[in-house]
């Protein structure tokens, strides 16, 4: 196993520019899973970012919250302001693995790993976060909901690293997070949902689902339904929008039918009474 240990973000970007197949480590919680069985990966080169403590920052400004790329779930759980301004971050962080994983795992790593079951990503997307991608040639910002291009694929170039996540500070009058796993803790999400409504006029809905498509998915059709104020009387009234937004599959953890049905029920029971059109 080869490990590169840069001392600064600039040095890390240099490594990335020279060697396109580096695997960045920002918490490494996915690295050791079944490690003895993954012999081929023992030969890869890893870019260990752990010395870049300047990336382990939580910065509140007048307009946004910025999480440096090494910010862990635990860091956010400990932040005094996160719970009031971004309660869904707290709710999702608590449901990621166990405390050991929460204290090592990073929000940026969760994004970069690209799992459609990632629990940190839906809430960030529901808060309209964007991702700062840094390379030798500078930093660009990409809205998180435009970050993924396919299963474990993203717009991140091999010479780029996620350096920060930025979340705009806005007023929300509704926010909910659901994680449905096969047990109450230590489970991989079978279907997850994060929803927010900005209290500005007109209200803006953001609905994000995970484990129901090749990527964590913003659900435009469901959002349109909510923005249009279409009357909804039962979970099945979401079915057409769900069918257009997500493409769940039968896999080792659940079934497509289950995921679609539960998504509709979670939407319905979460929104019933919140919007006058839904009863």
């Amino acid at each position: 196993m080869n490990v590169l240990l840069p001392n600064s973000l600039a040095e890390a970007c240099d490594f990335c520019a020279k060697q396109p197949d580096l695997i960045p480590l920002a918490g490494a919680t996915d690295l050791l899973v079944h490690w003895p069985l993954r012999q081929a990966e023992h030969d890869k080169t890893y870019l260990d970012l752990s010395k870049l403590q300047e990336l382990r920052t939580i910065t509140w400004s007048a307009n946004s919250l910025t999480l440096g790329a090494l910010t862990t779930y635990w860091d956010v759980l400990q932040d005094p302001r996160a719970k009031s301004d971004f309660p869904l971050l707290i709710e999702s962080a608590r449901q990621v693995g166990a405390i050991q994983i929460q204290s090592r795992g990073t929000w940026a790593g969760n994004i970069a790993n690209g799992s459609p079951a990632a629990d940190g990503v839906p809430v960030l997307m529901a808060y309209d976060a964007s991702v700062a991608l840094t390379s030798k040639s500078g930093t660009r910002s990409v809205p998180l909901h435009e970050y993924y291009t396919g299963y474990r694929k993203s717009v991140r170039r091999s010479d780029e690293l996620i350096s920060a996540i930025s979340i705009p500070l806005r007023r929300y009058d509704f926010a909910v997070f659901h994680k449905v796993g096969a047990r109450r803790a230590q489970a991989i999400t079978k279907i997850g949902l994060a929803m927010t409504r900005e209290s500005a006029k007109p209200a803006t809905w953001r609905v994000v689902a995970n484990s129901v498509a090749a990527t964590v998915k913003r659900c435009a059709a469901v959002e349109n339904l909510l923005h249009a104020g279409a009357p909804i009387r039962k979970p099945e009234d979401f079915a057409a929008a769900i069918a257009s937004d997500v493409t769940p599959i039968d896999d080792i953890r659940s079934t497509a039918d289950y995921r679609r049905t539960v998504m509709a029920r979670l939407l319905y029971h979460s929104l019933k009474g919140v919007s006058p059109a839904i009863s």
Binding site: V33, R183, I188, I252, R253
Partner: peptide
């Protein structure tokens, strides 16, 4: 991960 035994929370 995929063979689901109960945790203490279950």
């Amino acid at each position: 991960t995929n063979y689901i035994i109960p945790t203490s929370d279950d």
